[in-house]
Design a protein around this nucleic acid. Sequence first.
DNA 1: CAGGATCCTGCCCGATACTG
DNA 2: CAGTATCGGGCAGGATCCTG
Lengths: 130, 130
Amino acid sequence: MAPRTNPSPAPGESEEDVCRQVLRILSLIGDKWSILVIGQLRDGTLRFGELHRAVTGISQRMLTLTLRQLERDGLLTRTVHAGVPPRVEYTLTELGTTLLDSAIALGEWATTHRHEINDNRRRYDAAHPS
Amino acid sequence: MAPRTNPSPAPGESEEDVCRQVLRILSLIGDKWSILVIGQLRDGTLRFGELHRAVTGISQRMLTLTLRQLERDGLLTRTVHAGVPPRVEYTLTELGTTLLDSAIALGEWATTHRHEINDNRRRYDAAHPS
DNA sequence: CAGGATCCTGCCCGATACTG
DNA sequence: CAGTATCGGGCAGGATCCTG
């Protein structure tokens, strides 16, 4: 059970700071591309092009931006291997792995309740013919 | 541990359908307003105006839209009490409560690792003076 | 009080073209 | 191959005004 106490504001940061930080991290989960990219890296290292092909529908631009953000947060590492053609590999850090585990837990909640939610939606739409 | 098996596509739905549904539900978590609204309802029923005041910064419009979506998904109930002035109360359903619990687990991950992530960011920004 | 309806703006993101 | 740079459309969402 989650404690009802405040998230320990810690010295030097306001409670609002904590809230914004947590929200920003949560938005990582909500971000379609972030989760998909992290998920692809679950089983090991992948190159840029492999990720590009694995994550269906993502544009080069968004893949780059997503990877930069995740690298910045320390959720994955970017390794450039010298030579031609260039070769850049991406790997989850341990931090990234723990996030993925938590996200998967939430994904299982979503998977478990998807039918219930779909039913709710159908009922609502049927009752609200706007 | 999360099973590596596919999320049981179930008869009548493709694997892509499942993926899209799960992603859409995950985006609920990432959505700033949804999480904040659900969080406010943790300890019981609140009226529209109370939510409006509790969730700092949300506009009337976004609060309405957020509440509608959550009601549609069956995460909360909307109860209109006749009379003047109007009185509309919002309460989490059990489904909503279970989602909140999962989200809180993720929030605790974020809270736990916020300093580590902040440090990573500072390091990255220091190393990439673009 | 609890919202509709409307206008308007910023920015997100995809498409495209170019480079080391 | 693995990106950067640039342009542009779409739409999320804030501000404002109006009702039952």
